[in-house]
Design a protein around this nucleic acid. Structure first.
Length: 291
DNA sequence: TGAGAATGGGTTGTTACTTCA
DNA sequence: CGTGAAGTAACAACCCATTCT
């Protein structure tokens, strides 16, 4: 199911690959100080994607979309919606372009102020009841929002308004949905990171145990000289002539594991791992995503 | 009881304005 | 008197914790 792209400049195809799946593929804790931050905090300058406000206004005027048929209209958009849109004249309406003193800004500031007021419950919810109304978004609404989020996890004011209009929601609802969605994404990412670190820790513990055992065996061998003398060198541990530490394999022509494994647990820490650090790579769930 | 919509407070970045050397 | 730097206020967007349905 695909919605016309021209409407919002968004890809709204509702295919089956879920966002979570795609997102988990981005886990790469070794390449970023905060694995999730680069994903979460990226801003999306896709203003160019949107057409003029007038155009979108026309689109929403009379068109009936099949996928919106079942939409639960929480609040019908005000009759002035199109006038609101017409007020957006700045072709470069970005997040930052809206900052600064309101009185000096282009007319959209007023619309946003209205929107903010209404969406903060100042006027909109006051249909006699004081309690806020939490209404479940319909499946279609959620699907469209989800698809938008897949494309870009932040919205500029134009996009917000357009989405709100399309879904018959208040702009504030769209904004809140995106905020909550980002929070959910971050939570999920944190869980994935946590799981990854847990596995990393377990593997390191296991590796440490194995090495300790190996050290003990070597010490035992050293204590029995006759046995020690007739022994072939260990196949896995060899002294590196250049750095005088134990390398994993001496037969390797490239001297590949140049990075020594310290025999003593109290030995100074090895230099930073090379890009080919085999242990880390083995843990990396998405080795191909590494740049 | 969990999911998710909504709210309020705090933070940050941008712009306009004012003051001062 | 003009000018640039620094300080400040206003504003919007965002994040986060929390409430509430």
């Amino acid at each position: 199911m695909t919605v016309e792209k021209e409407d919002l400049g968004l890809s709204l195809s509702l295919n089956s690959n879920s966002f979570e799946n795609r997102q988990s593929l981005q886990l790469n804790p070794m390449s970023s100080s905060s694995p999730s931050s680069h994903f979460l905090l990226q801003k999306s300058p896709w203003n160019h994607v949107f057409g003029s406000a007038e155009r979108s206004c026309e689109i929403f005027k009379g068109e009936t979309r099949p996928f919106l048929k079942g939409i639960d209209v929480n609040r019908l958009p005000s009759a002035a919606d199109c006038e609101e849109e017409a007020g957006i004249s700045s072709p470069n309406s970005t997040l930052s372009s809206l900052s600064g003193k309101r009185s000096e800004r282009d007319p959209i500031g007023d619309e946003i102020e209205i929107e903010r007021d209404s969406s903060r419950g100042i006027s909109d919810d006051e249909d006699g009841e004081t309690s806020r109304k939490k209404l479940r978004l319909s499946k279609d609404q959620s699907a469209v929002l989800e698809e938008s989020f897949k494309e870009h996890n932040t919205l500029n004011p134009k996009q917000k308004l357009a989405l709100a209009k399309q879904l018959h929601l208040r702009p504030r609802q769209v904004e809140v949905w995106f905020q909550n969605r980002r929070a959910r994404t971050k939570l999920k990412q944190t869980e994935v990171d946590c799981e990854f670190l847990k596995r990393l820790c377990e593997n390191l513990t296991e590796e440490n145990r194995r090495l300790q055992k190996e050290v003990q065996e070597l010490r035992a061998l050293k204590l029995s000289p006759q046995l020690y003398m007739h022994m072939t060198p260990p196949t896995t541990l060899t002294l590196c002539p250049s750095c005088e530490r134990v390398a994993v394999s001496s037969s390797d022509a490239n001297h590949r594991p140049h990075h020594p494994i310290p025999i003593s647990p109290w030995a100074p820490p090895p230099p930073p791992p090379p890009p080919h650090a085999p242990f880390i790579r083995a843990l990396d769930p998405h080795p191909t995503s590494r740049s």
